[in-house]
Design a protein around this nucleic acid. Sequence first.
DNA 1: TAAATATGCGTTTAGTTTACACAAAAATAA
DNA 2: TTATTTTTGTGTAAACTAAACGCATATTTA
Lengths: 224, 224
Amino acid sequence: MNQAIQVSVDAVVFGYEAGVISVLLIKRKYEPFKGDWAIPGGFVLNNESLEAAVERELVEETGVKINYLEQLYTFGNTDRDPRGRVITIAYVGLVRPNAFKIVAATDAEKVQWFSIEALPKLSFDHKAILEKAIVRLQGKITYEPIGFELLDKKFPFSDLEKLYTTLLGREIDRRNFRKKIIKLTVLDELNEKVSQGSGRPAKLFQFNQERYFHLKQEGIIFEI
Amino acid sequence: MNQAIQVSVDAVVFGYEAGVISVLLIKRKYEPFKGDWAIPGGFVLNNESLEAAVERELVEETGVKINYLEQLYTFGNTDRDPRGRVITIAYVGLVRPNAFKIVAATDAEKVQWFSIEALPKLSFDHKAILEKAIVRLQGKITYEPIGFELLDKKFPFSDLEKLYTTLLGREIDRRNFRKKIIKLTVLDELNEKVSQGSGRPAKLFQFNQERYFHLKQEGIIFEI
DNA sequence: TAAATATGCGTTTAGTTTACACAAAAATAA
DNA sequence: TTATTTTTGTGTAAACTAAACGCATATTTA
């Protein structure tokens, strides 16, 4: 057989801070689309798994440490790459707020966070990939507790609430939201407080992943 | 670059009839795994899309006409194929009951429907693919109206109900289920009846896809 | 010291889901 | 021919869940 198809991976990496969802993009150094923005990614090596390829490319191109990774979709249209037939397996990655600093230390012309409300023109079919990733993220946070992966390990309730209002694009009743999450019993209440500006200091909470897996096995499902 | 990765597609095709969910398997003619059962599939041609490759392979290997197709997941472990590095993009397909007959006309030693309750040993990592496909199907029927794709175009309510009890693996209150589905307004009530054995003849219903898309755009979601 | 701001908790109301019973239309058995 | 069995079709009360809403508390700022 003389199949000539190349295989790449791409990662849509989301970050969240202060009411803004951002995505990590790189400025392409080489043709095609030289100088344009693109989702980080690259070709898979013969003897590495797809996930290993994503993690390698992310370290090489952005220096960002990923906190959560899941496969999104495989894009395989025959004309999606001007260099020839290239199929790409796209992933969605989530990082915690401190990952923003790592990128700031890198060459700013090469890697940058963009708010998903103000995206630049993208190379290849990366616009379609990014849109699908946003839909996945918005959908998934309502039935899997992946929102926590975008927050600091310890967070006040208002951070979680704001993340959800941002992601879902609608107001949520603060009190009902709190009750609902508390009832799921996947949050540990810590004996710590933070004071962010004026107002009453907030208790810190932490997601209890172990407990979540336990509940999931029993068939209890997370749902917002 | 000297990437040497081959790309294949595989399709887990589900069918349903009389309370049994079946999956379409082929008996392999050549090595590796010669004589073992496998999910239909094969290598992607250089200038065909992934979906076209799935449809081509299904026609070539099984003669089955697919009614619904969606991408499932891409399996890319380095050791999943003894012949070398092969990644496969797996799809889930659904067919209507009359497709069963088409297969019966084909060589029975090559293509066969297996109840998902009594599956044979499978080649490659096809067991993992099939399990993922079953999870996808079970999950998806609760929030997308894909169950209709497994039934005849016109069907009595009891058929739909039985499909759901089978797929979800639990009893559903017949009256509440009917009310719930009717309330979604995606079924057209026809002026036809069928008499299946003893008992009162049942009205026939038909899924109104156009209406569903319309409702979906308005944000109304299908949910069982 | 008062006002402003954000957290934390509780109650009432509306809506949805679940549980459950019986009439109607046909096939089958007596 | 009639009674019995079988499956379809509809309604209603109870239990639960989600939505709407008010106020006290702890801190910063004026």
